[in-house]
Simulated assay, not measured.
Amino acid sequence: MKSPLGGSDLSRSTNLVAVGTLAVGLLLWACGAFSFFSDHDVYPWYAKLALLTAAFVIQITARRRPVVAFGAMCALLAVDAFWGPSLPLWIVMSDVVFLCAARGTRILRHVVIVVCTVLTLGLAIAGAVVGGVQVGVLVGLVGIAFLLSPITYAQSVTAARRASDAEKTAAVSQAHADRTQALADERRRLSRELHDTVAGHVSAIAILSEVARDVADPAQIVDSIRGNSLAALRELRAMIDVLAADGDERTTARWSSLGPLIAAADAVGSTVTVDGDPQAQSHQVEAVLTRIAGEALANATRHAPGHAVSVVVDEFDDRVRLTVRNEMSCEPSGVGRGIVNMGIRAESIGGRADAGPAGTDWIVTAEVPR
């Protein structure tokens, strides 16, 4: 959003106003209304041309040299007061006052306000003394129209410009904050994806590698290691495809992708039973439940190897519930990122997820709307 008085726009506007004012002065001259008092027009043609030219030059330079322009116009009006006063000069003065009040320094604005106020009051009092109250009121109104009104308008324009600048600054700040928040959300999302997918498979590989060293025939364990390695690679490729795509496609986890994690649990002696299948639900529900179940299986394999694990999916009219239960081999030491991510994933589609001990078992429960 541009300022109401931007540099190049103001320069063009000032030049156009100066040309328009010169044209109005020539028109007033042609109509015999060059002076406020038609019976007191004593200027010869060359004097009028000189006054219009001088006023035009002053008006053109007012944007770059407002102090010089204001002083020059005051001096020109003082000289003109003896033979005029000339209406075109007062029109130019009105524009110069506006430019000084709108674009000048704070000191210049105060000086212009004081000078114009004193000049208006002085002319009104002089008119009342010379011609009576009626003349004084009319002269005062002329001063208000040509001197004080431009100041008021300039103050309104300045306030609008400041409001526009403040709005622009606020918009830029908000855009920066939104961008920062979006980047933070994306980093957290990628962190969850890596944790819930690759980390689970890598953790299973580490556990299976430990077990493989102590068994006589590690063929089944090696097959499980290979399966989890391939699953981790598939997850990484899927994430790379999402990051490389122009759109905002999301990786969709399928219930069948739990196979390598179930095989890893079986390889360390944890019998996994699965009852139910959310594949009949929407892809979004299936993906969320798959991620939560995968994290629960990885945790069970890591922290309670050799204990049975049950995965149950119950479907109701308005919701789907996932329950993963395994016997604890020791008291949990704390809550890691995995449990936090479970809750975030469930909440992302309007559900909830809880995890905690129940007697000698560790139970993960998630409920999401259908």
Rank of each mutant, 00 (worst) to 15 (best):
F316A: 14
E315F: 08
E286T: 03
H303M: 08
G306T: 08
S256K: 05
A280G: 15
V311T: 12
V268D: 00
A298H: 04
A298I: 06
G334A: 13
P278T: 14
S282I: 06
L230H: 15
S209F: 11
V335H: 15
A267L: 02
G269Y: 06
E315H: 12
Q220P: 06
H303Q: 09
V268Q: 06
A199I: 13
L230T: 12
R226C: 04
I205Y: 07
T290L: 10
P305T: 10
G200D: 01
L208E: 13
A216P: 03
P260R: 01
D277S: 07
V285R: 06
A219Q: 05
D277C: 06
L233W: 10
V272I: 14
R213K: 11
I205A: 01
I262T: 03
G294D: 07
A265E: 00
A216N: 01
V285Y: 09
A232C: 00
P260Q: 00
H201F: 05
L261I: 02
N228M: 05
A253Y: 02
E235T: 01
N228Q: 04
A308E: 14
V320G: 12
E249M: 09
L261F: 00
G247Y: 06
A231R: 12
V312N: 14
G306Y: 01
D217I: 00
A232Q: 02
N299C: 10
D248G: 07
P278L: 15
G336M: 13
A280M: 08
W255I: 01
H307T: 14
A253R: 02
E210N: 13
V285K: 02
D317V: 04
S256V: 08
E327V: 15
E210L: 03
A300E: 05
D314G: 06
A253G: 00
G259W: 13
D317G: 11
S209R: 14
A264K: 01
D314H: 12
R291G: 05
A216H: 03
G306I: 02
A287W: 00
T323P: 08
C330T: 09
P218S: 02
A206K: 10
V222P: 10
